[in-house]
């Protein structure tokens, strides 16, 4: 360890031995100014909006693919079929206004029933 201490204390060791590209320090000032200029350059409106536009396009493409797939497989028509079925089930069932009022009065809480009446009759 004593040898290492002596080696470290040798003044020659304290001189940095790193290599350096020729003329490096002569270029520093110019490159610093270039970097400052680049950092101060304001981005154009196109550059600012580009990510948002790309995102919107992506959503449109995904939505288009989804719609196209549903259209091709007939999934979209399922909703119409369900509506038709419900209408068919309700066909033939008839009730009077009185029956409807009695039904609502028994099914709704008194406060909700009052509220509904207020909405229907505007009082």
């Amino acid at each position: 360890m004593k040898d290492i201490k002596n080696i470290l204390d040798d003044p020659k060791m304290k001189i940095r031995q790193y290599s350096l590209p020729e003329g490096y320090f002569e270029t520093v000032e110019e490159r610093v100014h270039d970097q400052i200029e680049a950092s101060q350059r304001r981005p154009s409106l196109v550059a600012i909006l580009r990510p948002a536009v790309l995102l919107a396009c992506m959503f449109l493409i995904i939505g288009g693919i989804g719609y196209g797939t549903m259209k091709l497989t007939g999934s979209l028509d399922d909703r119409d079929r369900v509506t038709e079925q419900l209408e068919a089930n309700l066909e033939g069932i008839e009730f009077t206004d009185e029956e409807a009022a009695t039904f609502l009065e028994t099914e709704l809480s008194p406060a909700a029933f009052e509220e509904m009446l207020a909405v229907v009759y505007h009082y």
Partner: peptide, 13 residues
């Protein structure tokens, strides 16, 4: 060198 140069530029900025 490359890292030291980058850091020097960042320091001046």
């Amino acid at each position: 060198h490359v890292d030291a140069d980058d850091l020097l530029q960042n320091t001046w900025l």
